[in-house]
Write a protein that binds this DNA or RNA. Sequence first.
DNA 1: TTGATAGTTCGATAATATTCGAACAATAGC
DNA 2: GCTATTGTTCGAATATTATCGAACTATCAA
Lengths: 100, 100
Amino acid sequence: MRQFRHPSVSELQVASVLYALSDPVRLSIVRQLAREGEATCAALDGGRPKSSMSHHFRVLRESGIVHTRNDGTSHMNTLRRDDLDSAFPGLLGAILSVPR
Amino acid sequence: MRQFRHPSVSELQVASVLYALSDPVRLSIVRQLAREGEATCAALDGGRPKSSMSHHFRVLRESGIVHTRNDGTSHMNTLRRDDLDSAFPGLLGAILSVPR
DNA sequence: TTGATAGTTCGATAATATTCGAACAATAGC
DNA sequence: GCTATTGTTCGAATATTATCGAACTATCAA
């Protein structure tokens, strides 16, 4: 599969990040990635169709929250913690520390 | 005019707050309120129609970000800083400290 | 009571997002 | 090569949101 474009730190926009995280499905993906470090798309689908998940991963990727790398036929996703912290210090931590 | 309902701290939901703040118009309203303490709706309209602004203030109010009180014929809006800090420590600060 | 002011609510339209099946692409293993 | 697996892309249906004019409500002041 082809490579994805990941926005650079200087391209990150807080409104896009907030928007991406305002969806329950995506917020849940991000919480799991924060806990587990990295995961494939399939590991986080919660029973949803692949095409729906692919959409959500795209939003997370294009807003700069998640990095996706190819690993055989699967895609490994990780949180871009350092990049987010450098662009928006404290933001991700504040969101992730909310219970639930 | 009638009184508005403001959600209590325990009712606040991080996804709703993030959603409300992901809109450029609303984010700009919140930034100005943070700087200026309080303001009427008209003072923050930036030339937009009243009905559009009323919509945005409603979203901010219903997500618990803004408190609106009646003051004669106008509405005074304030940021619910303490409430937000108590529900989501550090979140508002992280967002407001982003330049621009 | 009349008029002006501030903002809400309604209703319609336009723009965006979400959802998901179906078709497709890339890789791994046999 | 064939086949299974993983995930993307496309397309269409649905749902949600934003925008804004028009009508309305409440308050104040003359």
